[in-house]
Design a protein around this nucleic acid. Sequence first.
DNA 1: CTTCATTTGCACAGCACTGTGCAATCTCGT
DNA 2: ACGAGATTGCACAGTGCTGTGCAAATGAAG
Lengths: 219, 219
Amino acid sequence: MITEHAAARGRAGRMTAMTTGNPSRADVNRRRILDVALAELLRDPDASMDQIARAAGVVRRTVYGHFPSREALVGTLTDEAVAAVAAAHAAGREGVVDPAESVARSTLAVWEIADRYRLLVALAQRSVTMQGIRERLTPVREASTEILRRGLEQGVFASPLPPYALAYVHEQTLFALMEAVNDGLLEAREAGSSAAFTMLTAAGVPASRATELVAKLSD
Amino acid sequence: MITEHAAARGRAGRMTAMTTGNPSRADVNRRRILDVALAELLRDPDASMDQIARAAGVVRRTVYGHFPSREALVGTLTDEAVAAVAAAHAAGREGVVDPAESVARSTLAVWEIADRYRLLVALAQRSVTMQGIRERLTPVREASTEILRRGLEQGVFASPLPPYALAYVHEQTLFALMEAVNDGLLEAREAGSSAAFTMLTAAGVPASRATELVAKLSD
DNA sequence: CTTCATTTGCACAGCACTGTGCAATCTCGT
DNA sequence: ACGAGATTGCACAGTGCTGTGCAAATGAAG
């Protein structure tokens, strides 16, 4: 029984697999389970071990042979995804001195490995609860979109993004800043104007204009 | 038995409560349950009905007297939160013609009701899975922070936000754009440069410079 | 003090999982 | 065809919930 997921941790599977490069049956299965799990969790982040096992053409018990727990499986997966993202991010910024170029390069690099990164997004945004929230926020998002659409049309905003995608960005930006407050990185009182500023610049409004506007409004 | 949560839907509680303005005992309890549940779910988005009930100084069975299911309770709460957000957002933009001012005003307005809005954030970002992801992404976020710190220092970036908060924003922005791709609003291929552009402007880089830089890099 | 709405306290059924143990079976490489 | 390693198929224990039914206690309003 594969030494009951010993392979999962230290890769101490079997002579053949260690010395020769060709992977053992267990190695292949383990890989297949991970790959299928990725796809399956992308569809449904709450997929059970049974769903994953069946999708991988294997029995639930076998999955437990490779991973001691569901958490371990998902953990391995996110570890791989994060590692890929981290590598891309690092590669993007290596040897670059200009911070702006670093940001741009690393973003582009991360975007390249979207497949892996997408797992993280799916896991993050697709919980049952999250679905409900985003659905309920739709009217607000649509009102936002309309404003953004007008602003882009008039040239007040500058962005290659379609208005609706920009509305997504705005929504998530607010979430990010609220979370920053929750984590004590930001003082709630003063952060309001910072939030407004960020929303404006994210839409492509020049920083100077944003500063001026926010100052005017929060007197 | 309060007609078993009839009050939850159509408010058909009782003569006294309907005619006179003073709320019945049930009404008071219902309100208290909602308020406590808000606080409790803020601490732990996965709080069970029992935890909520106890915190409200009431027995689990009583909560079921007011809300037919956990989902209904959470739903009522998010409905209230979203309604508050929507109202603030609408109030912020009413009668404003300039889109930039609309965005700024509505952001500030929404920020005012942070308490309610925070529930949505907590529910959205605090799932067990999400915790794991954010934790694992920490090294990447820190590398990002360092770049942002340098950029802010040099004046390449302009933002009132501390670097770490800006890193939160960047992280969430990428999530937003990936989700936009997942939802078919954006073409994955071309979106890379849009993403880079958005990350730059969010950091306060002028749109013109962002355009130029991204164009140079994605040739 | 009566009455009616509400709340309480259990008990119970059910569900959808997660992890494990073990014997039987399969499948390679040799 | 052998044998070690891997997989399968059950069965089972355990967990931590959710949602319900019902009789008894409580409390406020008249």
